[in-house]
Each structure stands twice: as structure tokens, then as C-alpha cells.
Amino acid sequence: MTPIFHMISGAPDPVAPFSHAVQSDGWLFVTGQMPFVDTSVDTPYPDGIEAQTHQVMKNLQTVLAGCGFGWDEVLSVRIFLRHFDEDYDAMNAVYASYFPPGRRPARTCVGVNGLAKGARIEIDLIARRS
């Protein structure tokens, strides 16, 4: 199957040369989303890790829906935190609200030295439709 390179209307503009998602053979690879509150990458982020986590999840939802996918098809998630020790527990509380217990994707969460435009969090994911 030829890959489909998605640019989703309503999702934040890219901060680098990438597609919002790439789809191939039932798989969907979603580029890491930042906490931009609209499509412009020049708008300020919301304050605090809770608000930034909700905004990233909203942006991921926009990309998923634009590709015809939903949260129930998400298999793996990677989370990048700029202030790991400070933000980990609060981020987890927000993140957990998006997936029911017993149906949570595999996940990796790592601390990083920096993220684009000074974000506290970035999340990417992989989904699959059978």
C-alpha cells in the first residue's frame, strides 16, 4: 500500500518539515503534537502542565479524527516532558482521563532538555485499524 501523508485542516501548523501523520497498511503514525491553542505556531502556550497536556491531547484528537481514527485505535504513545520530576504526576492525571482503565496504550515517557518553542510537553502516537 502506498503511504498517505496527511496534513490536517485545523491542526497546528508544523514547526518543522513534517506531515501531521503518515498512514500505511492500517497503521497511522502521528507526529508529536505541541500545546498550540490554534493553528498558528506563534501563539503562546497555555500555562501549566495540566493545561498543556489537555491541549496536546486535543491536537492529537484533531489529527486522529482528520485521518478517520479514534482513541480506541491508539496502540502506543510517547510522551516527552521538559520538567520531568515536576510535571510527571500532574501530566499522568490528565493523560489517564483520555483512556479507560484496561484499555490504555503501551507508553514511554522521557525527560528531555528542550522542546520546540519552549513547550513543557510533546506527545506522539501510533494507531492501527484492523
Rank of each mutant, 00 (worst) to 15 (best):
H6T: 00
R128D: 00
R104C: 01
Q61D: 12
E73G: 06
W71N: 02
D47K: 12
T2L: 11
A106D: 10
M91Y: 09
I49C: 06
D87H: 05
P46R: 08
V77R: 15
E122Q: 04
D38G: 09
S24K: 14
G70A: 04
I49K: 09
P46G: 03
A127I: 02
D89A: 13
A116L: 14
G118H: 10
A119H: 05
S76G: 05
H20R: 02
Y45A: 03
D85N: 10
G48I: 03
A21K: 01
S76W: 07
C109Y: 07
N59T: 07
G10T: 08
T39V: 07
D47V: 06
E86V: 06
F99W: 13
D42C: 02
H54T: 12
I121A: 02
D87C: 06
V63I: 13
C109R: 12
P105G: 08
P100I: 07
L28G: 11
P35W: 01
E73M: 11
V63F: 14
E50A: 10
L81E: 08
P14N: 07
A106I: 10
R107V: 04
E86P: 00
L60N: 15
P35D: 04
P100D: 11
P100W: 09
D87W: 04
I8N: 06
M34G: 02
F99D: 09
E86K: 11
P105M: 10
A51L: 07
S19T: 03
P44T: 07
V30C: 13
V63M: 04
N113K: 04
R78G: 05
A90D: 15
S24P: 00
A21V: 05
L28Q: 08
K58C: 03
I4D: 03
R120K: 02
F18Y: 07
P35Y: 01
N113G: 14
G32E: 03
L81W: 07
V74L: 03
H83Q: 11
G70N: 06
R128F: 11
D89N: 13
A127R: 02
V77Q: 11
P17F: 00
K58W: 04
R120L: 15
V63W: 11
L81G: 03
S40F: 02
L75Q: 13
V37Q: 12
F36H: 14
V15I: 15
Y98W: 14
R78N: 09
F18I: 04
